[in-house]
């Protein structure tokens, strides 16, 4: 490869990165422009945390069956829920945007552009998620301060932030898979519901998957849904370098696999649109 080729490649890569960064900023701008919705989301987060914390505090206090598994610290489940909901509520509805663009023909203007629609959409979604993560994170810290509840250990915070952000990336990819089904299905709602329920069940939305019996726990931990929710949230209960690295490894694996699946679906769907002129 000649130096001219290398130079042209690096210029191309710089342009691609600049367009992705710009799309990210666009997502940030869009979410900030809809600040009343963001405020509503934060209020909803507070309500959820108050209700679920009360529930889990009662369960822990009365030592109901199942809650003694592992060494859950007092209030640990409430913190766990705080992180799972932080991630869940930060997820943008990327599946709805994809479905809308694909089914309404809104994809056409994007196909007339030289940059990948899929990459641009991901980047924009992550921009939106970044604003939500920040707003919800600040809300959670404020709530901890107001209620006087014991926060996670200080060393857990960087682990939670890194795994939480990557958990959102996994979530965006999972929902994107549902959205991309719009190329073949009239509605993507059934796919979205299945993914949502699996996030609930195998991701450990309301309780750590360590409460599941042996085999089921193993299956859940290895699933993309745990990479989305369980691994970041587990750090709120028991932060450890080893747990962080394990979570990071699972998230890395699933981000690669889900990205490949999204690209594969996108290419197949795009070929269909270019051939048939719509869906």
């Amino acid at each position: 490869m000649t130096s001219t080729h290398l130079h042209s490649r690096s210029v191309e890569a710089a342009h691609a990165a600049s367009a992705l960064l710009s799309a990210f900023r666009l997502g940030v701008g869009q979410t900030l422009a809809g600040w009343p919705v963001l405020v509503g989301r934060c209020i909803f987060y507070v309500i959820l945390l108050i209700v679920l914390s009360a529930l889990w505090d009662k369960v822990a206090a009365e030592r109901l069956p199942g809650t003694q598994a592992g060494d859950l610290p007092p209030g640990g489940l409430a913190l766990y829920i705080g992180v799972t909901e932080w991630i869940t509520l930060a997820l943008p509805a990327v599946h709805l945007k994809l479905e809308d663009d694909i089914r309404s023909g809104g994809l056409e203007p994007h196909l007339l552009r030289p940059k990948s629609y899929l990459a641009q959409t991901f980047s924009q979604s992550l921009g939106a998620a970044a604003v939500r993560l920040t707003a919800l994170g600040v809300t959670a810290l404020a709530l901890l301060a107001v209620t006087g509840r014991e926060p996670p250990a200080l060393e857990a915070f960087p682990y939670i932030v890194v795994l939480g952000v990557l958990g959102v990336v996994v979530g965006v990819l999972l929902y994107a898979l549902a959205g991309l089904m719009a190329f073949w299905a009239r509605r993507t709602l059934p796919f979205q519901l299945v993914i949502q329920k699996l996030m609930f069940l195998l991701g450990g939305l309301y309780a750590p998957v360590t409460l599941y019996p042996g085999t089921l726990e193993g299956v859940a931990k290895a699933s993309p849904f745990a990479a989305h929710l369980y691994w970041p949230s587990a750090q709120a209960i028991a932060a450890s370098w080893q747990g962080f690295l394990t979570g990071l490894a699972w998230q890395g694996l699933w981000i690669v696999l889900l990205s490949l699946a999204c690209v594969r679906l996108w290419r197949a769907g795009l070929a269909k649109v270019l051939r048939e002129g719509g869906v």
């Binding site: 342009h15 600049s18 367009a19 710009s22 799309a23 666009l26 701008g29 552009r113 030289p114 641009q120």
Partner: peptide, 11 residues
């Protein structure tokens, strides 16, 4: 903002 985004999309 849209125009600015298009600037990046078209390099």
């Amino acid at each position: 903002d849209s125009f600015n985004q298009l600037r990046h999309i078209y390099d």
